[in-house]
Amino acid sequence: MIIVAAAVTALLAAGAVLVLIRLVRGPSTLDRIVAADVLLAIVVCAIATEAAYTRDATSLPILVGLSILGFIGSVSVGRFAPGSRR
């Protein structure tokens, strides 16, 4: 179980580093917004992995709140992005 947790942590960290590079070097504002949304998804996955590893359910309300925040952010960006049709 420790090997799986270490592998998942390494993959999530690598994904977060790549997303942070896209967040900094993104050619447009929409790329940066999508990168921030993906970074939020990686954080949710990291918290869920920690909750599964420790078998502790106290972080589930945090997961629900972050998931709702990510969904609302994605929908609002899609709605108010330049060039989107109404």
Rank of each mutant, 00 (worst) to 15 (best):
A13L: 15
P27F: 02
A48Q: 02
V8Q: 01
I62T: 09
A46I: 02
G70D: 03
I2S: 14
I72W: 04
V19T: 15
C45L: 14
D37S: 15
G65S: 11
V8F: 00
A5D: 10
L63V: 00
P82V: 07
R79K: 14
V44L: 10
V24E: 10
V43M: 05
I2R: 11
P27S: 13
V17E: 03
A16V: 12
L23S: 06
V44E: 01
L39H: 00
V4F: 12
A13V: 15
T54G: 05
A36H: 10
A16R: 04
G73A: 14
G70Y: 01
G70C: 06
I42N: 01
V24Q: 10
F71H: 02
P82M: 07
S67R: 02
I42W: 01
S59V: 08
T49Q: 08
P61C: 08
L69C: 09
L60F: 06
A51F: 00
A10C: 05
V38N: 03
V19G: 09
V17S: 07
T54N: 07
A48K: 00
L20E: 09
A6Q: 10
V24R: 13
A36F: 11
L69N: 02
I62M: 06
A57G: 12
A7T: 13
L18K: 09
A16C: 12
V19C: 15
G15T: 12
L39F: 12
P27N: 09
I72L: 14
R86F: 08
V8A: 07
A6K: 03
R86T: 13
S28G: 11
L30M: 15
R22S: 11
G26K: 05
L20I: 14
V24T: 11
D31E: 12
S67L: 05
G70M: 06
L12Y: 01
L30E: 14
L60W: 06
R22F: 05
L20N: 12
S76G: 07
G26E: 04
I2A: 13
V43T: 09
L20Q: 09
R79G: 04
R32E: 03
V38M: 10
D56G: 04
P27C: 08
I47F: 01
L20V: 13
T29F: 12
A57N: 11
S67G: 12
P82L: 11
V34I: 14
V43N: 00
D31A: 11
S76A: 15
